[in-house]
């Protein structure tokens, strides 16, 4: 479903103006002492708690709701800024006040 993101520079814009940059995992780990496995986990492995609301044709689901996550987005068709925002994978919506990080 089409939703909008809050760019800290441009304000609310259609999501299709942005590039998704993934969950915020913090800065790049130091290279010294980083094992190959740690590195590849950092790059690719994610935990995305589930739960989804209002399953089609069924009742509203309760419990184990997806946790809103901090993410990086790039306003490629706008100002060209990478910013952090909070979005809920369970609703596919930016969480109120999540923009502008």
């Amino acid at each position: 479903m089409t939703f909008r993101l809050t760019c800290p520079v441009c304000g609310k814009r259609d999501v299709y103006e942005f590039t998704f940059g993934g969950q915020d995992r913090g800065p790049r780990p130091a290279q010294e002492g980083l094992s190959a496995e740690e590195h590849f986990r950092w790059v690719q492995f994610r935990m995305i708690p589930g739960g989804w609301e209002g399953g089609e044709g069924g009742g509203v689901r309760e419990g184990d709701r997806a946790a809103p996550q901090e993410e990086w987005w790039y306003h490629g068709q706008g100002c060209g800024v990478w910013f952090r925002t909070t979005r809920d994978p369970g609703t596919n919506r930016e969480v109120e006040g999540g923009g502008g990080g």
């Binding site: 590039t19 940059g21 913090g26 800065p27 790049r28 990086w72 790039y74 490629g76 060209g80 800024v81 990478w82």
Partner: peptide, 12 residues
């Protein structure tokens, strides 16, 4: 390219 540079230096 601009996106790439800024992504990889976004914390810095």
């Amino acid at each position: 390219t601009v996106e790439w540079f800024r992504y990889h230096t976004r914390y810095d």
